[in-house]
């Protein structure tokens, strides 16, 4: 496989992973049953909150490994690589960081011996999907303005 087609495959798989995370995240809202999606034959699982929660954990594990693997490879370039990041790229990186941090905090919160106050829990619960929406809007804006992570 050529380097270019490898990159295209990698990008498509990453987008699929993000879509699956978005779907299982949305499935945490009680909407798929209300709006008939779970009534479609083969889609009853979309209204199973526990199943979608577990799938979200598994997908998040794969995403985190992927992102940090890419980050590690990128950091091997040192200062030279960091200087190529565009301001728009930095904005998206910070949004991603927020999603990851709030996601990890939510996982910690779900552990039996870790306690977060009700206010902190609510802040995390609202920030995590809020940042996902902002990331979606930023991605659309990036397409529209033809802006990527890197300069040039």
């Amino acid at each position: 496989m050529s380097k270019q087609s490898k990159a295209i495959w990698s990008k498509n798989l990453f987008n699929l992973l993000v879509f699956a995370l978005l779907f299982t995240g949305l499935a945490q809202m009680p909407i798929f049953k209300r709006y008939y999606l779970a009534d479609i034959p083969g889609f009853a699982w979309t209204s199973d909150f526990y199943l979608n929660h577990i799938l979200h954990y598994i997908l998040a594990t794969i995403l985190l490994f992927w992102i940090f693997f890419r980050l590690g490879k990128f950091l091997r370039q040192g200062q030279r690589g960091i200087k190529t990041i565009s301001p728009f790229g930095w904005a998206k990186i910070f949004i991603w960081a927020g999603i990851i941090i709030t996601g990890i905090l939510r996982v910690l919160k779900n552990q039996p011996n870790i306690f977060f106050s009700p206010e902190t829990t609510m802040f995390i619960d609202w920030t995590h999907p809020g940042l996902v929406i902002i990331l979606g809007l930023a991605a659309l804006l990036g397409k529209f303005l033809r802006q990527g992570y890197f300069k040039g």
């Binding site: 954990y57 598994i58 998040a60 490994f65 693997f69 552990q111």
Partner: peptide, 21 residues
């Protein structure tokens, strides 16, 4: 199941960085 999977989620960033290294 979530309690067990949490360790995998938390280890994933470290594993990703280690794999890159």
């Amino acid at each position: 199941r979530e309690e067990n999977l949490a360790m995998a989620v938390l280890a994933a960033p470290v594993a990703g960085l280690a794999a890159a290294l």
